[in-house]
């Protein structure tokens, strides 16, 4: 239930931020009766109402009343939030790396970074697999499919 309370607070924050952004939508002379801000305002209010409902339900529930999880879900362990965010962080670093270094070097760093982060011990084998993988992707996208990939400032 604690999770539901946190979710409720987060949703309220999103609803408030979205409403503020809605108010800033410019008014157009071409606008119809509903206007470009009509639906967004309804959505912001609806989200706030749902968030409050979720919070109230979490507060008044004496016991967690939920349908039991399936056996498959019970057996499925999940990463901690910090660990999961770390992985996303490595993915986010790909953007500046690709912009500066270019596609292949950035991809080598991405595969290498994730492999090490996910538990592989540092070794030349890991480096080799990262280089091989990046080359494979370059061959697939750039050479075979003819799709451009980030050029990079340095390479």
């Amino acid at each position: 239930m604690k999770k539901d309370l946190i979710a409720s607070a987060l949703l309220l924050a999103v609803a408030a931020a979205y409403y503020v952004a809605t108010v800033r939508i410019p008014v157009s002379t071409l606008a119809d009766e509903v206007g470009p801000h009509g639906l967004p305002k309804v959505l912001a209010i609806a989200l706030a109402v749902v968030a409050v409902g979720l919070g109230v339900r979490a507060l008044i529930a004496k016991r967690p009343v939920t349908v039991p999880e399936t056996a498959a879900n019970d057996d499925d362990p999940e990463a901690t939030p910090l660990r999961a965010l770390g992985l996303l962080g490595i993915g986010a670093l790909y953007m500046p790396a690709a912009w500066i270094l270019g596609y292949v070097p950035a991809l080598i760093l991405l595969i290498l970074g994730i492999a090490l982060y996910e538990g592989m011990r540092p070794s030349w084998r890991v480096v080799g697999i990262a280089i091989g993988g990046a080359t494979l992707f370059w061959l697939l996208f750039v050479v075979l499919l003819g799709v451009p990939q980030p050029a990079g400032l340095l390479f």
Binding site: L107, L110, I111, L112, I114, F141, Q149
Partner: peptide
């Protein structure tokens, strides 16, 4: 090993999205 699979899937996602 899952670490390699994760790395390759992430690389596939980011490369594919860029296209």
């Amino acid at each position: 090993p899952r670490p390699y699979l994760s790395g390759f899937i992430f690389a596939l996602v980011l490369s594919g999205v860029y296209t």
